[in-house]
């Protein structure tokens, strides 16, 4: 009896340890070192296109001429938009040339920020918030729904090149958790959008993906029809009257 109990308990303990360890969360889309591929190598020529060149000089004009390197993040962002959502190493080299620093100083910045994708992403890069409030509200299920629907792994691009799914840190929408972000690189840097879709459900994200596939632009913001922005479902329940002025001050006298 005791032996059976003990063995049962042992099995439980063993199972607890055998639980598949949490998959490693890779926030960035790439490794911290570069591997040459045909579409991503230092020899491939890359430069800002004619439409973006005025933007480059506009960005540079925000900073003193002796601190050109301050422009590295906005320029990387612009380069990423121009290059369909990701930064090949030659684009980083081009930015380094513009801000007049050694390429490694640009690589440092690009590898630090997970929003810079150093690997190919889809035209619509879907980013699922994985931070605690969203996770508690079911972001793992949303990610699974997306991955299953698209038939890809995380940071993998679908065969048609339209979608890729990644994870990101808190975007400050915790009140409407869970949320995903759709970075839309389908129209270059002019039509670039970065929209939040909040209060999503596994069913709703699939609908959003299908709408995007059809070329529609689903309305951004909360996906709960009962809510307006981040107000409560079914209208406000509190703070209904006019706000009272602070008792210490007569606002009318101002």
């Amino acid at each position: 009896m005791l032996a059976r109990l003990a063995s049962k308990r042992l099995l439980e303990i063993r199972q607890a340890f055998h639980q598949s360890p949490q998959t490693v969360r890779s926030l960035s889309t790439a490794l911290n070192y570069h591997i040459d591929t045909p579409d991503n190598n230092s020899k491939a020529p890359w430069e800002f296109n004619e439409a973006n060149k005025p933007k480059v000089s506009e960005i540079l004009s925000h900073y003193p001429s002796n601190y050109k390197q301050s422009a590295v993040i906005p320029l990387l962002d612009l380069a990423q938009q121009q290059h369909g959502g990701w930064l090949p190493v030659s684009a980083m080299d081009a930015v380094a040339k513009v801000v007049e620093v050694a390429p490694i100083r640009v690589y440092e910045v690009a590898t630090f920020y997970s929003m810079f994708n150093r690997q190919k992403v889809g035209k619509y890069h879907l980013l699922v918030c994985g931070t605690t409030p969203c996770m508690i509200r079911g972001s793992r299920d949303i990610e699974d729904a997306l991955l299953n629907h698209l038939g890809v792994k995380r940071n993998e691009v679908t065969k048609d090149g339209l979608f890729s799914v990644g994870e990101m840190e808190c975007m400050g929408c915790c009140v409407n958790a869970p949320m995903i972000t759709v970075a839309d690189y389908s129209n270059g840097s002019e039509g670039y959008t970065y929209n939040y879709y909040e209060d999503v459900t596994p069913k709703r994200v699939v609908e959003i993906v299908e709408a995007l596939k059809r070329g529609e632009k689903p309305p951004r913001g909360t996906q709960n029809p009962d809510r307006i922005n981040c107000g409560p479902a079914g209208g406000n329940t509190t703070l209904l009257g006019e706000p009272k002025p602070p008792p210490c001050r007569d606002l009318d006298a101002c």
Binding site: S28, A102, P103, R105, E108, Y113
Partner: peptide, 11 residues
């Protein structure tokens, strides 16, 4: 200017 600090956090 060859060496740099790449990535962030524990990576």
């Amino acid at each position: 200017q060859d060496l740099g600090m790449l990535g962030r956090g524990s990576g």
